[in-house]
Design a protein around this nucleic acid. Structure first.
Length: 929
DNA sequence: CTCGTCACG
DNA sequence: GACGTACGTGACGAGT
């Protein structure tokens, strides 16, 4: 049947379907290999619903799904900033694009995209053809850019709201008929697509003007006549931009297409290709539903494909690993990787500082027992050679050739790159211009599965799960002063070591990946571990600018004060000794001066901690007081003002910390080399160090932190009405607790009573004990216990929470955060003092862990949220994020970041309390905090 | 390499 | 009845 009168064409906006599906569904993955599949699932469901919903009398005769071609379009040539604000699609969505095309074809529906054009242009062209042939056309989309096409038998249909949009609907939205929509859009512009338009003119004003002057050209010609000076000026000054905008928003409706309307004729889906596609995607429910509807037997979905059990994994054999020396050998590996769809990757470098080391070689593995090493920059001479030469060793590919060959594979959306601690390798690759994606990380898989049970380093995992001790690196590099870097290792020695790491990584992945579902931590891994890798890698590469001179001046200052104190201390002690030695200090205080004090078990040394010295100082001991002063300065100098200077990268002038994703059992990050999560703030003197952390010229540091996030989570989890209400009312929570506990009205609150309540609030989070609170508040233990009893009396829900949590931990040997993170508590139920530790850790973990989850979720969403804004995320300090922002953009960035942070629990968890984020700005961190 | 100490949330 | 006790981290210097 040739398309004509009586025919009805349905054009589905494929990209809109994909994004809607992606955002509507959790990040599902294919069970057998972890391929992200949520958007495809949603897409198929929407397509199927669309088919089912259109079987009535108004059924289409012709259907097509139209997609955007990935890449630049002709509009970018007209205007280079077109859609430049659009963030790139999420990493786990990209591999799903081709699959949605496959899905469309599997449903036996025509599917088209054209290079250099947008889907909207194709839709415009087809709808015009349909109209001219005398038929009808329904565009299934709610995109306002398509509204210009409505009329003359062309309508739109919002599939979500099931609402048809005709010419009246367009008038409602734009204030003008479809034929004038582009004029209004050209004037109003569009910040999402970066259409400039005229400043200060929105849709309302634009419609008003167009209705008054008939069309855009006439309006521009008569712009001088406009009464309002602002509008007149905007139109006159921006006439060219407005005409350009019109060009951008006007859809091309006369494309040369290599298919006709007749090719889009609706055909019934064929059971075979459709069901085999759905089975391949492992969509159980949909496969069954469609099979039933077609009246055929649903095919079985066997999920044992690749990993699951690998009882026949071959034993480790380092002799079997391949030394890749030339293009032919590497080509073969790349071909195998494409056959497989995944590869384990590991990089060897000249050190551990990712910002400075060189890439020395790359290892790959696609199957247990089979791995290769591609040496690239090994030096000629071996370690025993006295004069190491700079010449490259034999048997290595040219560095650039190898990278050029590997780069497309490493960046290919359809190839999963598996690594152990991929953040490290991703940073190394980023420095040679390769953006590795998508990735899986065995360290993070283990973290999601086993947090609390053991560490997640490769050696430990290999021993524990593969019963294999990896080849140690020590014999290759040596130790101490004579240690060499990996590029000095003989290639023949490097091959088995390096290739084995890839082999181990692959085997661990095969073992761990299927366990995610079994342990119900897929969502944890997919939303809070894996997507964090590129985010943290970027933050670490950003670094934060540190002013060396500020630190250096402080160091000198501290050194002088310390010298003076040291002399004073020696004077008081009656002899000279090392003030930094707790052992010597203890002997002086307790033996020579004969003060009261006890030994501390294991080493037999006296305890001289701050608490001990403070007690002595309070009794009037001058020596103890001076040592405390000295210690504070010593700490600040050695750990901060001195050490920090050594961490300033000479190339960037910035300090690049490294975040440990799988370090803390609770889900918190840890910061190392240097630790930027413990920069002083509590004392005036220490806080000055933060003045050395500065923003680049023209920029400021912006700090946003969650207010009382752990107490809010406690209020939510333990379901304490009084606390929840207090947070909703924005009350001072410690004062409110104090008032409740000590029967003091809020307006009679004293700082001291509030301080006690604050200590109790924190104590609760940590699994309070009378002893601990007594020590913290320096009050008699009995009194502390009285406070605690009173607290539980007033908030009985807290006790219930603690009891049920401990019971849960006893039974399951793990606890869970609000977002499903499991924290294992293997010590639970053991005897002795360890029982107490385990109990308190179990009480604390869901609280601290949920807070950690929330900021992780915020961080994962941040790059997209601030995309296109002149802002960089630099640091995370547990409940605080620090950004470097161009001065003029501070307000805009603050709003966006605050929204993301305050909404980070959604949609997974709707908290009963609001999350509140405080913001600060300054030229340095001291000001911003 | 372990311990004591102390910086942070 | 005694025992040890706030939760989670990392870095430094001393001393083995």
């Amino acid at each position: 049947m040739s398309f004509g009168k009586g025919c009805h064409l349905h054009l589905i906006d494929g990209s809109a379907f994909i994004f809607r599906a992606y955002h509507a569904l959790p990040p599902l993955t294919r069970k057998s290999d972890g391929l992200p599949i949520g958007a495809v699932a949603g897409f198929c469901n929407m397509l199927y619903k669309q088919i089912e919903a259109n079987k009535g009398p108004d059924a289409p005769t012709h259907v097509a799904v139209i997609f955007d071609y990935s890449g630049k379009t002709f509009r970018n040539e007209i205007y280079d900033k077109y859609k430049a604000n659009r963030p790139p699609p999420p990493e786990d969505l990209r591999p799903q694009f081709p699959l949605t095309r496959d899905a469309t074809r599997a449903f036996n529906i025509a599917c088209h995209e054209v290079e250099g054009f947008e889907a909207d242009d194709i839709i415009a062209t087809l709808s015009r053809q349909a109209r001219e042939a005398g038929g009808r056309c329904t565009i299934i989309s709610s995109d306002k850019d398509l509204m210009q096409l409505v009329g003359g038998g062309v309508e739109m249909l919002d599939a979500m709201k099931n609402k048809r949009i005709d010419a009246d609907g367009v008038r409602e939205k734009f204030g003008v008929g479809p034929e004038r929509v582009v004029d209004v859009q050209a004037l109003a512009g569009d910040s999402v697509d970066n259409i400039p338009g005229a400043p200060g003119i929105g849709i309302k004003t634009a419609a008003l003007l167009i209705n008054e002057y008939g069309d855009l050209e006439n309006l521009l010609e008569h712009a001088e006549e406009i009464k309002q000076p602002k509008r007149r000026q905007a139109l006159i000054e921006n006439a060219d931009l407005i005409r350009l905008s019109k060009q951008l928003v006007t859809l091309v409706d006369d494309m040369d297409l290599d298919f006709t309307l007749d090719d889009l004729e609706l055909k019934a889906p064929e059971p075979e290709p459709l069901l085999s596609f759905l089975t391949e995607m492992e969509f159980r429910t949909l496969t069954k539903r469609i099979a039933d509807q077609m009246g055929v037997e649903p095919p079985a979905i066997e999920v044992s494909a690749a990993p699951v059990d690998t009882p026949d994994a071959p034993p480790f054999n380092a002799g079997k690993y391949e030394w890749v020396k030339d293009v032919d050998a590497l080509t073969k590996w790349i071909e195998r990787i494409y056959e497989r769809g995944y590869v384990a990757v590991d990089t060897e470098t000249t050190g551990l500082d990712t910002m400075r080391v060189d890439l020395v070689g790359i290892s790959l593995s696609v199957e247990a027992g089979e791995a290769c090493y591609i040496p690239l920059r090994h030096k000629e001479s071996a370690g025993d050679d006295l004069f190491a030469s700079d010449a490259l060793a034999e048997g290595q590919m040219n560095f650039d050739v190898a990278l050029t060959m590997l780069k497309p594979m490493l960046q290919d959306e359809s190839i999963l790159k598996i690594g152990q601690n991929m953040k490290y390798d991703a940073k190394i690759f980023a420095r040679v211009g390769v953006d590795v994606a998508p990735i899986d990380d065995t360290m993070l898989l283990s973290y999601a599965l086993h947090a609390g049970l053991h560490n997640h380093g490769m050696d430990a995992l290999s021993e524990r799960y593969l019963d294999h001790s990896p080849i140690p690196i020590k014999p290759l590099l040596g130790a101490g002063k004579s240690a060499i870097t990996f590029d000095k290792v003989k290639v023949a020695d490097a091959v088995p070591y390096a290739a084995e790491d890839a082999d181990i990584t692959l085997r661990l992945w095969q073992m761990f990946k299927p366990r995610l579902h079994v342990e119900q931590v897929t969502t944890v891994y997919e939303t809070m571990e894996r997507p964090l890798v590129p985010v943290l890698a970027q933050m670490e590469m950003n670094g934060i600018k540190v002013d060396r001179d500020v630190l250096s001046r402080m160091s000198n200052n501290f050194a002088q004060k310390m010298a003076a104190l040291e002399a004073e201390i020696h004077e008081l002690a009656g002899r000279s000794f090392n003030v930094g030695s707790p052992k010597q200090l203890g002997e002086i205080l307790f033996d020579e001066m004969g003060l009261e004090g006890g030994k501390k078990g294991k080493t037999g040394a006296y305890a001289t901690g701050a608490d001990v010295l403070e007690d002595l100082a309070a009794e009037g001991n001058e020596l103890a007081a001076r040592v405390l002063d000295w210690r504070q300065l010593s700490k600040l100098k050695s750990t901060y003002t001195d050490a920090l200077q050594d961490h300033i990268n000479p190339d960037t002038g910035r300090v690049h910390t490294s975040y440990v994703i799988a370090g803390a059992n609770t889900g918190r990050l840890a910061s190392t080399d240097p630790n930027l999560q413990n920069i002083p703030v509590r004392t005036e003197e220490g806080r000055k160090i933060r003045e050395a952390f500065v923003a680049d010229e023209g920029k400021v540091l912006l700090s946003l932190d969650y207010s009382q996030i752990e107490l809010r989570i406690l209020a939510h989890i333990a379901d304490i009405d009084a606390l929840k209400q207090a947070f909703r009312d924005g009350l001072d929570i410690h004062a409110m607790t104090a008032s409740e506990m000590f029967d003091v009205p809020l307006d009679e609150m004293t700082p001291d009573i509030r301080r006690k309540a604050k200590a109790i609030n924190f104590g609760v989070i940590y699994g309070i004990s009378g002893f601990g609170l007594a020590r913290n508040l320096r009050i008699p233990r009995k009194e502390a216990q009285g406070f605690i009893d009173r607290y539980f009396e007033r908030f009985p829900g807290i006790r219930t929470y603690m009891d049920t949590t401990v019971e849960y931990a006893k039974e399951h040997k793990y606890v869970k955060t609000l977002f499903g993170r499991k924290i294992h508590t293997p010590e639970m139920g053991s005897k002795g003092p360890r029982a107490g530790f385990a109990k308190r850790a179990a009480i604390n973990a869901p609280i601290q862990g949920s807070a950690a989850d929330i900021i992780r979720r915020a961080m994962v969403r941040m790059p997209e949220a601030i995309y296109g804004m002149p802002a960089k995320m630099l640091l995370q300090v547990h409940d605080e994020l620090i950004f470097e922002v161009e001065e003029g953009a501070v307000d805009a960035v603050t709003k966006v970041v605050r929204d993301v942070m305050e909404g980070a629990s959604m949609p997974a968890v709707k908290l009963d309390v609001p999350l509140i984020v405080d913001a600060g700005v300054g030229v340095n961190w001291a000001e911003a905090h």
